[in-house]
Simulated assay, not measured.
Amino acid sequence: MDELKSELDATLQARRELGTEYEAALVDSFLGKVEQSLDTAIDRQVRRRLGEQQVASARGVRPRGPGAEGFGARFGFGIISLVLAVPLSAIAAAHAGLAGLVVAWLGIVGVNAVHAFRDRLPLSPRDEDRH
């Protein structure tokens, strides 16, 4: 981060010295350095997470914690299932009455329960054979 700050300072100083006619080239150059810095940081993070996943996979454990699945993914799954529950409920009630409505909601609750507790389930034998 300090490196980018020095690059920005150098770019601003060069702009003052060269004038506004070189502004676009200076900005492009600085943005290229920012992009390169981001690429390096992202590559480092991806390699670290892949390494963690490989270690967890070798041990037969699903990765857990903030990197495995964040709050946003769980929250999004819940919201989508509730949004889809409205038309499913209407269709089920229209075609099968109360029994269809109950079956539809049992399915919705079941899918959400499996999604919520899947990290607590052991790996299947097929998953262990692949690793």
Rank of each mutant, 00 (worst) to 15 (best):
S6K: 08
L88D: 06
E7F: 10
F75S: 01
G110E: 04
T40K: 09
S81V: 06
E52Y: 04
A113Q: 08
A93Q: 06
E35A: 13
F75K: 01
L18A: 07
R15E: 13
A113D: 08
G70K: 00
L84I: 08
R44V: 09
A116V: 10
R48Y: 09
R120G: 07
L4G: 00
A68S: 04
K5A: 03
V34Q: 01
L38Y: 12
Q53P: 06
I108G: 02
L12Q: 14
K5F: 08
A41P: 03
R64V: 12
A73N: 05
K33I: 07
V55A: 05
S37I: 07
L8K: 05
Q45M: 14
A94V: 03
G51S: 02
A10K: 03
Q45P: 04
R120Q: 10
A93D: 10
R130P: 06
G32K: 04
V102D: 00
V46T: 14
V109I: 10
D9Y: 15
F30L: 00
Q53H: 12
V83A: 02
V55T: 09
G76M: 13
I42T: 04
A93C: 08
R15P: 09
L106A: 12
T11H: 00
L82A: 11
L4P: 02
S81M: 11
Q36M: 11
G19D: 09
P66I: 02
A96M: 04
W105I: 09
I108N: 03
L31Y: 09
D127Q: 14
I80S: 04
A10E: 05
G100L: 02
Q36I: 07
V102N: 02
I80D: 13
E35D: 12
S29L: 03
A92N: 03
Q13H: 12
G78I: 06
M1W: 14
P122K: 09
G97R: 00
R44I: 08
A104H: 08
A104P: 05
T11P: 01
V102K: 00
P122Q: 12
K33C: 02
R62G: 07
K5W: 07
A96S: 04
T40G: 04
L12A: 12
D39L: 13
G97Q: 04
L50F: 14
A113N: 04
G70L: 00
L8A: 07
Q45G: 03
L12M: 15
L8R: 06
G78L: 10
E17T: 09
N112P: 05
I42S: 02
S89T: 14
I91T: 06
T20R: 07
P66V: 02
F30C: 00
G32R: 04
G107Q: 03
Q54P: 09
T11D: 00
G97D: 07
V61K: 04
L4Q: 00
L26H: 02
G65W: 13
G78D: 07
R62K: 15
R48F: 11
V61Y: 11
E3R: 02
V86I: 14
V61M: 05
E21F: 11
R126N: 07
G110H: 06
Q54V: 11
A104V: 06
D43G: 15
R62D: 12
R118M: 10
L123T: 13
L18H: 10
M1G: 10
D9I: 13
R59Q: 15
